[in-house]
Amino acid sequence: MDIPATPPAGPAAPEPSPFAQRVLDVVEAIPPGRVMAYGDIAEYLAESGPRQVGAVLARWGGAVPWWRVPRADGRPPPGLESAALAHYRDEGTPMRPDGDRVDMRRARWDGA
């Protein structure tokens, strides 16, 4: 069975809402080796909340450095732990002694 080089055409994915685009812009601006939690992004934007930020990343986050948005306790996004940990190592992100979580105190970016 031959697999096509490009996927078959389907309905176009809707463009991100203005809020979603703002979230994606913030994630794109996070420097390598630094992170912002979902709630940090919502607070930085002064709108919505962590769940809405998470929903944006779940839908459109593949095009931005999604691994730079761990949970508030420093754990990587669920289901993407291995990939995120590899990115953290590559970028020199400060980690907790257990090696499974980002050291949020040292790695958190304030958006400045």
Rank of each mutant, 00 (worst) to 15 (best):
D2F: 08
P4E: 11
A5Y: 07
A5C: 05
P8E: 06
G10A: 12
P11K: 08
A12P: 11
P14Q: 01
S17M: 05
F19R: 09
A20H: 09
R22I: 13
R22Y: 03
V23T: 02
V23Y: 13
L24P: 04
D25C: 08
D25F: 10
V26D: 03
V26W: 10
E28M: 13
E28C: 09
I30W: 15
I30N: 10
G33Y: 10
G33F: 08
R34K: 13
M36G: 01
M36A: 00
A37Y: 01
I41R: 02
Y44G: 08
A46C: 02
A46E: 08
E47W: 14
S48N: 11
S48H: 15
G49Y: 13
Q52Y: 05
V53M: 09
V53P: 12
A55F: 10
L57K: 06
L57F: 05
L57C: 01
R59M: 05
W60V: 10
G61R: 10
G61N: 04
A63T: 15
V64S: 09
W67L: 09
V69E: 03
R71H: 15
A72K: 00
G74T: 13
P76T: 04
G79Q: 09
S82I: 14
A83D: 09
L85A: 01
L85M: 13
L85D: 00
H87V: 15
Y88K: 04
E91C: 01
G92S: 08
T93C: 13
T93Q: 10
P94L: 07
G99H: 05
R101M: 01
D103Q: 15
M104E: 13
R105S: 09
R106H: 06
R106M: 07
A107C: 02
A107G: 00
R108M: 03
W109Q: 04
D110K: 09
D110V: 00
